[in-house]
């Protein structure tokens, strides 16, 4: 199956075969990380612009390393101290960047749909690196890659996503991606942090942590997205942590081979106890490693799908 899309905007758009294609490509890219010389000439002469209107270290660095290992020229454009603060519109900024002939623009923006808007107006490929509470497709893909690597398959698995579902773009990408790959998804969290029409996405909803994680093969713990939250959604951090935080004690009733994932950054002591974050169940750092491989795969597939 070949990649034919100009952009990667969401996992909701993708077919299962396309997701498999990215995961297979990413699996092959991982070998490059083990080399003494971590560079292949594949995207020589291509330019990747990281256009980040929202703070990010991990994702931006991951895209930057991915581009550099493929020999692309990677340029970082961060919104602080830039034209956006001087009142330039998103589209104007993007048009200005396009005038410098990039091949791929990687966008993060606080507004859902911003990457889709850019994709419609720019000739180059656009990758959504997180838009508001909408999607974060490369995170969804790296989660799938990590699960497939550890479990050997995806179909038939059961995943619990726990925490702030409402404000999480990772949850949305995970749900769409996992459903397409035949995974049963349960979301769990306080009622104030679960979107009302959540079942329409084909997931189970639970309001008890112990119930949600009891039979899960994988538990995805999410951070409270304070930056996107109104006040009053949770009584206090301490109570949230007591009820919804994952501790070794609560893990006792889980499957012995359960995997703990987290998209980072982890708030130790809130959603994850330090003992769990560092436990043998945790694959959080594998996720980071796989993030580079997935982004290499995405850059490779998109850079080739453009008209020559």
């Amino acid at each position: 199956m070949g990649w034919k899309r100009k952009d990667l905007l969401s996992l909701q758009d993708l077919e299962a075969a396309e997701i498999r294609d990215v995961l297979d490509t990413a699996g092959s890219m991982k070998e490059i990380a083990t080399r003494e010389i971590k560079k292949v000439p594949t995207l020589r002469g291509k330019t990747v612009v990281n256009l980040f209107f929202e703070a990010s270290t991990r994702t931006r660095t991951s895209f930057e390393i991915a581009g550099k290992w493929l020999s692309a020229d990677v340029v970082n454009f961060s919104a602080s101290g830039s034209s956006a603060e001087k009142g330039e519109s998103l589209l104007d900024t993007a048009k200005n960047i396009e005038a410098m002939s990039p091949d791929v623009v990687v966008v993060r923006h606080k507004a859902s749909g911003a990457p889709a808007l850019l994709a419609r107006h720019l000739r180059c490929a656009v990758v959504n690196a997180g838009d508001g509470a909408h999607e974060h497709p490369t995170q969804g893909l790296l989660d799938l890659l990590t699960i497939r690597e550890k479990k050997g398959h995806l179909e038939g698995l059961s995943v619990a996503i726990v925490g702030d579902i409402t404000h999480s773009r990772v949850a949305r990408s995970d749900i769409h991606g996992m459903k397409k790959m035949g995974i049963t998804v349960t979301v769990a969290g306080p009622p104030t942090l679960i979107p009302p029409a959540c079942q329409e996405l084909g997931v189970k909803v639970s309001h008890r942590l112990e119930e949600a994680i009891a039979h899960a093969d994988v538990i995805v713990m999410l951070r409270l997205q304070h930056e996107r939250m109104e006040s009053g959604l949770i009584p206090s951090l301490r109570e949230y942590s007591r009820v919804w935080g994952l501790s070794l004690d609560k893990l006792k009733h889980c499957r012995p081979d359960v995997l703990i994932m987290h998209p980072g950054p982890v708030n130790r002591g809130v959603e994850l106890s330090p003992e769990v974050a560092d436990s043998r169940y945790s694959v959080i750092l594998d996720q980071v490693t796989n993030g580079v491989a997935v982004r290499m795969a995405v850059l490779y597939l998109l850079a080739g799908s453009q008209p020559a």
Partner: peptide, 23 residues
């Protein structure tokens, strides 16, 4: 050896060939 990432005809193709990994 998988030579896909080293091909000289990548941008001549409509879509990228599958990468199959070097071991």
């Amino acid at each position: 050896l998988d030579i896909t990432l080293y091909r000289d005809d990548l941008r001549l193709k409509a879509e990228q060939p599958a990468v199959r990994g070097t071991e």
